[in-house]
Design a protein around this nucleic acid. Structure first.
Lengths: 191, 191
DNA sequence: CTATCACTTCTAGCGCCGCTAGATTTTGAG
DNA sequence: CTCAAAATCTAGCGGCGCTAGAAGTGATAG
């Protein structure tokens, strides 16, 4: 492989990332309904068909943004979980980090967990960062708890509900902290 | 007001409902992305502009479907809650009814709680049936519990999370019952 | 140095979308 | 039967996702 081909591939990879970033920024700034192939092409300063040489279509761009988000969320949750796996505190920290992530990047969160997708969840083809993020919840429960996966599912569901209803203006946006505290108390606090 | 005008208004109201029903059926059959003004007009056997004499636009049709859903959900939850307000059982029954409703009418549920909307939640202009549905959750908790509204919010959020993640293929679709049982146990089961 | 050719990128356009202006048809009163 | 008003439709605008084929670009063989 020649040096020239090499440079080309590097530039191509850069442009690939540029498209993903542009889509994400445009979505955060104006919502996903404003992310059209025309506006995206204009933003990356190429014509529309160039997008299709990188992605199979608009859905694939959205999927790429979501996958980027899964990686960032996993890191965020990992950093939030303290070394000591003392259930209530660890769980509270990870849950708070999750809600903060959703609130800070509403459009990204929407691409990951709300918009239609064909990304496989809880499946062999699940992107590793997504599984890693889920495991952060699992690891908030004692290893001897045979139902820790189930606890993690319920916790994650509850957090998603709070994040989604809040982002959609369907629940008091303040009071998120109170809800978080109550959730953690109830999930971790008894049997 | 003449008898003729009267008849006209009756027919007009019928057509209004026909549009709502057609939109809902089409969405349940093929998803909301298949609900276009052209297909909807064809289905009700009128031209497109007729839709706009009944609704301000596609979003308003969607909103009308959602509001119809709020009424049906409130009835469903009310019928599910047993007269005896014994917390765990009543809560379990109402929660199960909620998840069943979401699973039976995925597109309707999506219109109500997932798709963008300007329906006001937790607000003075909230549609009464929506508030009534929420109150069914509140009433699952003891009246002397000063935080029963908060408990209801967390419960509802958790249920929405389960329903939405399940409908979006983002969580094991089986196991919904296990998750429900665990949720109710944790929310109602400890002090 | 130039001709070639593969590769990259763009222009232009298809069928569909939500929505609307203005023409046309239908209706019921006089 | 006439005719204005009301109801409804035809036709079209600008924008959407996507793509075929034209045009441009640059490395390489002669």
């Amino acid at each position: 492989m020649s040096a020239i081909t090499n440079r080309r591939e590097r530039e191509r990879a850069q442009r690939h990332q540029l498209i993903i970033t542009a889509a994400r920024e445009l979505a955060e700034a104006e919502g996903w309904e404003a992310v059209t192939t025309r506006r995206l092409a204009e933003r990356v300063e190429y014509s529309q068909p160039v997008l299709y040489s990188h992605f199979d279509g608009k859905d694939a761009i959205l999927r790429a943004v979501a996958i980027e988000g899964f990686g960032e969320l996993a890191v965020r949750l990992r950093d939030a979980r303290p070394a000591t796996p003392e259930p209530p505190q660890a769980l509270h920290a990870v849950c708070r980090a999750y809600l903060e992530f959703a609130a800070e990047h509403p459009a990204l969160y929407q691409a990951m967990f709300v918009l239609p997708t064909d990304v496989k969840f809880a499946h062999a083809e699940t992107p590793p960062p997504l599984r890693a993020g889920f495991d952060e919840f699992v690891n908030c429960f004692r290893p001897d708890n045979p139902r820790r996966e189930l606890f993690a599912e319920v916790t994650w569901s509850a957090l998603h509900g709070m994040a989604a209803l809040s982002a959609g203006g369907r629940i008091r946006p303040d009071g998120q902290t109170e809800r978080l505290d109550l959730l953690v108390t109830q999930i971790a606090g008894s049997r």
